[in-house]
Structure formats: C-alpha cells, structure tokens
Design a protein around this nucleic acid. Structure first.
Lengths: 203, 203
DNA sequence: GTCTATAGGCTGATAGAC
DNA sequence: GTCTATCAGCCTATAGAC
C-alpha cells in the first residue's frame, strides 16, 4: 500500500449500473450538503431517475442513506485492515493506516463526514447500526495503538485521546484538500503520519 | 486563563431576554441537528415564541443563523486572542489557546460544528462572511505558530498542516466529550496541549 | 424496472389585528 | 412586540399503469 499501489475497490463495485448511479449521486450530495439538506428529488435527478424508480431501490430516504453508509464502511474497513497489517513495525503500520484513511476521506466515499451530525436526525435503530460500524472501524486503530504501546514503540500521553486526535487529524484533510493544492495527497499523508507518530512519542 | 479562571462571557450577553432565549434555542438546535434539519417552528417553540414573533428578531432563517454565528465568532475570537497572549513562551501560550478552544467547543457555543457542512447550504454572501470570520479566528493560531517557529520553540514538519491538525484535534473533543467522562475538561485540555506540542516538535 | 400522478403533511415566510 | 391565520411551494412516500 503506497502511492503507486492499486486504488481501493469502489464501495459500489459489483452493483447494477442504475443502482451504482443512484449510490454515486446520493453519496456526493449527502457528503456535500448533509442528509437533511438533500431531497430525494435532487438525488433522483442527479442519478437520471424518477422518484418512483428511486423507491424501487430503497424503501425510504433513510434506507437509502443506510445502504450507502454500509457500503462506505465495508470498503473503508476493508482497506484499513489491509493497511494496518502491512508493515513490519507498529510505526510502519500506522503510517500505512494514516495514508489509507486520508485517501478514503479525500475520495467522495467520505464516510466520516456523513457519520456526524446526521446521527442526530435519523432513527435510533439506524443510528445504532452506524455507531456499531464506526466502532468496528475505530477498533482497527485501537488495536494498532495498543500493539505499539505493548511493544514499547508508542508512548502516548493517553492512548484513547491519541486515537481520537489522530483520526480527527486524518478526517480534517477532507475539509481543505484540493487536487491542485500545494502538497500532493502522498505528501500530505506523509506529514500527517509524522505528526501522528510525534503525538505517540515514537522513539 | 486556567481551570479556576472566570468563564468566557456568553455570546448572548447584553441581549434582551426574549432575544437571548431565541439565540439560545437556535444555537442548541442548530448545533445538534444541523442547519437544514431544524425548522423555524421548532426554534420558536423551544424559545417559547410564535413564528410571527421570531420574524420580529430575524428577517429569515438564514439571517437568524448568521446573527448567531456572528455572536459565536465574536466571543470565540475574543477569548482566543486573550488566551494566545497570556503566557511568557509560545509553548505556554499555545497550551492556553488549546484550553480556550476546547472549552469553547464543548460549550454549546460550538462555532466549528456549525461552520462545516452548513456552508454548502446557505447563500454565497452568508458563506463569504462566515469564511472570513473563520479565517480571522484561524489567524490567531497561525500567528502563534509562526512566532514559535521564529524563536525556535516550534519545529513542525509543516506549519500549515500543523495548524490544521491541532485545530482539528481541539474540535474533535466536542464529538465525544461528556461531563461525567473519564477525564475532566481540564485533564483533556492538558493532554491535547501536550499532543499539540509534540506535533510541533517542541524541544 | 421505470414511469406519471397525487396524497398528505411540513416548510419558510407574510399580512394584519391587537 | 406578540399574536393568529394563511399562502405557496416543497417534502417523503404511495398507487398503479406500462
């Protein structure tokens, strides 16, 4: 997993073309404007469908959002697991995980931006599922930091806050990243990795 | 500015009681559910007003949001400036700024959570104003990091990304903080400060 | 699997009495 | 300065033809 490695599989891989268009449109719109600000008409229009057809693929707006987030998390968790196990030291694995996370955030998969204030608006059942998916994802970070602490590579002030802060740093990139910016995505990931390792007081 | 210091002045200080109730209600609702998910009826109800009366204080929902954000930023920028100038070394001033920022984020003033996806939904004029207010706020961080780099206290991998990451770390606290949690707000602020200083490679 | 048409309710906003 | 009443438009969702 490096700059020239193969890109992560799209969250929508293997879907029928129409459903794929629908998911793409929904993801892009939800990610930029937020769940509540996006109407199903807008999604349908963007996916070149009518509302009636949209409801053939999802039983409600919330159901559409959930299907989307399940796919997002599935692909995010898969690539994170892969990154977190490729590398011979905890520090290397952490750098890989940072790169994978930043890359995901910057793509329009953008799981995290969606799993924020939206949680307060959707039903409690949907919220519980999304929280569980998020926890499963964060568990990868947690395990890696624990491993690094166990073998003495990492000596964070507080392992839990270190995890939160590092994930936040990665997520933040999506807020300002532009493809034509001062630094390439790889350079950005490299800097964030070094910041994360500094934060963990790596020897 | 420490744990026993006087609290920052409320963003709504000096307002007529009714307007203050309105601002409080709007801030709490917008912060938890997001701009688009909150209706003016809900705000009016929470403020014990009718819709008609609400429109006596603001000419539109967006105007209400803007008035709110101006007050939020005014108080946030004031307390940040105060923190960033109290302390004899850049490291001390940075620790003070971290504490001030975390405290603000955790209170319901919560400027940053609001100034995120909402930007995509409001009018371009309103967006421009909010971006300018945010830049003014971030300028305080920028200047402090520059000062620290200039006198050799800070040696970040990249000063700009260091600023982004530190602000993100502070903002993140609001996502999980609970008053009855494992760590007090002061302890949290202390850990985040140390993380920020580590990230800046403070000697 | 995609469409049109429409139901039923909520939205932001306004008019005008008091 | 607060209220009631109301408008026009948009919302999610459904029914049923093709």
């Amino acid at each position: 997993m490096n700059s020239s490695g193969k890109a992560a599989k799209s969250p929508d891989a293997g879907l029928a073309p129409t459903e794929q268009r629908l998911m793409d449109a929904a993801r892009a719109l939800f990610a930029t404007k937020g769940y509540s600000a996006v109407g199903i008409r807008e999604i349908a229009r963007e996916a070149s469908l009518t509302i009636g057809s949209l409801y053939h693929y999802a039983s409600s707006k919330e159901d559409l959002f959930l299907k989307l987030m399940r796919r997002n998390y599935e692909s995010a968790t898969r690539s994170a697991r892969e990154a977190a196990t490729s590398g011979s030291t905890p520090a290397e694995r952490l750098a890989n995980l940072v790169r994978a996370h930043v890359t995901l955030e910057v793509s329009d998969s953008n799981v995290w931006r969606l799993n924020r204030s939206e949680l307060e608006v959707i039903s409690t059942e949907a919220r519980a599922e999304l929280v569980a998916l998020r926890d499963e994802f964060e568990q990868i970070w947690r395990q890696l930091i624990e491993d690094g602490v166990a073998d003495g590579s990492f000596t964070p002030d507080d392992p839990v806050l270190a995890r939160f802060s590092i994930i936040q740093m990665c997520n933040g990139v999506a807020l300002w990243y532009r493809p034509d910016g001062r630094l390439s995505l790889d350079e950005i990931a490299a800097v964030i990795s070094r910041q994360a390792l500094a934060l963990l007081h790596v020897a």
